[in-house]
Amino acid sequence: MALDAVLAVLVVGVAVWTVAARDTFAAVVGFVAFGLLVALIWVRLAAPDVALTEAALGSGLTGGLLLGASTRLGRTEAEATGELPGGLLQFAAATVSVLVSAGLIALVLLLPEPAPTLAPKVAANIAATGLQNPVTAVLMAYRAIDTLLEVMVLLLALVGMWSLAPDHLWGGAPGRREPADPDGVLTFVAQVLLPVGILVAIHIFWVGSVAPGGEFQGATIFAAMWILATMAGLANTPPVMRRSLRLLLIAGPAVFFAIGLAGFAIAGAFLAYPADYAKLLILIIEIPLTLSIATTLALLVAGPPEQEPQR
């Protein structure tokens, strides 16, 4: 409980810093710290699957993304602080926010405890999925349609982001190319850490069927490692029109759809798995899905095409 008190105060404190810091870079650093601390909260709330996702995606990749943006905007962001809103707006905003917070606090206290829960139903049916991790069972079986559509959301975000490229850069590689420094420390970091990261990513993905972990968490680590390689100048992002890249992007959802549609015939419903093969089929979906998600996440961090296409 002491731990929770410290954690709660710390999280709120860092959040306040993120809001109040004048310097955007400092605010972003605060946000990353915030994310790492929230990951601890998820462990305390007995949700290690979410903790993994929050640490890797909510804090890590999001942090990297915002950081790049804050640096690129640089001085304009500092100048923009000049246009702070008037006292009246601040007061109104504060009033609204306090009211919302107070209302939510009241609701939190009103929430029934123990809460109505689907945990028994998840447990009663988990055998049919062949999985042992209930969260993966929800994501890949009971609510597979949400997962499928969510992967489509990721892909659409990527299409939308690419569509922002100026016309003459269409077909080029996303992001800026980083110079390589073969003798630099960064290269060394990548050389040593990347293989370990790949191994950890596969580990997190693989244990997802029996323990906390899964395709999203594994994919995020893959993506982070790939971005690390590009930051070290050891790899460049592929051009957006490359066929193999496109196929890699759609492989996961395509296999998901294919097996889902096959479910009509072999299991009587879209996205249903025959009980004896459920685990195997889910694995067949998850492997390409992990690769597709990883690629999408990494490219979302890279941004729209910024390098001249090679004609």
Partner: peptide, 16 residues
Amino acid sequence: LLTLLAGGAVTQLIAH
């Protein structure tokens, strides 16, 4: 060990 390795390597970057 991973933390040590990572910490040692990153420390140089930050110092730089």
